[in-house]
């Protein structure tokens, strides 16, 4: 059953797999930054007292949350070069897709975080003569981010797992690299099991730290 396992295959593939992992980490990191940035804006819009603004943000979030990520990747991979009139490379198309998609999920987390800070603090901020921007930036958001840090980390782990979907447009992330090598060497067992173990260890460390953060930091 496990007789024909050749560990050397994985060892020889390590430099290439490392390249793939770097791509995955880069995409994850940039998507998290973009997603949290636009997610915060969307969350502030959703909580806005202007009806049309909050309606727009809510529609955006519900719409993107009803779609599969693969379809969104296809959309942007196809549409972005058409809109711009020139190809910008698969990486940027996919990055835009991830940021737009994840912003919808981050928005819901950030909104819950902002709502976890009591309303009286907003009133207190206004009473002190702070503007809306100052109240949000100096009082509400720092506390909100502290409260939602564990959930943000959990969502980022999901996002890290989701980056493997760039496989569908053939970008060379960690999983696609493993797949290419397994086709080249005809060694699917070793390479996919190795990929699964690597993802498992990284995500397990991530979800355990999310749990620790939850105990330690939540106000």
């Amino acid at each position: 059953m496990f007789g024909g396992i050749d560990y050397g295959v994985v060892e020889r593939a390590l430099p290439l797999l490392w390249q793939g992992m770097l791509f995955t980490l880069q995409l994850t990191g940039l998507s998290i930054c973009g997603g949290v940035f636009f997610g915060t804006i969307l969350a502030l819009m959703r909580l806005s007292s202007f009806r049309s603004v909050s309606f727009f943000a809510a529609s955006y979030v519900n719409f993107f949350r009803s779609l599969p990520l693969i379809l969104v990747i296809f959309w942007f991979y196809f549409l972005v070069p058409k809109l711009l009139g020139r190809p910008i490379g698969g990486f940027y198309s996919v990055l835009i897709a991830f940021v737009m998609f994840e912003a919808a999920y981050y928005c819901e987390i950030i909104r819950a975080g902002i709502q976890s800070v009591t309303r009286t603090q907003v009133h207190a901020g206004y009473a002190l003569g702070l503007t809306y921007g100052q109240t949000m930036r100096l009082i509400i958001l720092p506390q909100a981010f502290r409260n939602m840090l564990p959930v943000l980390l959990t969502q980022s782990i999901i996002m890290f797992q989701d980056t493997s979907l760039v496989y569908v447009v053939g970008l060379k992330d960690f999983l696609t690299t493993a797949d290419l090598i397994s086709n080249r060497d005809n060694r699917p067992v070793e390479l996919f099991v190795f990929a699964a173990i690597v993802y498992f260890i990284i995500c397990l460390i991530g979800s355990n730290s999310a749990r620790r953060l939850q105990r330690k930091y939540t106000i």
Binding site: L175, S182, F192, A196, Y199, F200, C203, S207
Partner: peptide, 18 residues
């Protein structure tokens, strides 16, 4: 823990190829 910490696509390949 096992099924939540491995990306779905990797799991799919494990079921299909491995």
């Amino acid at each position: 823990e096992l099924f939540r910490n491995i990306p779905l696509l990797v799991q799919l390949f494990l079921w299909y190829f491995v």
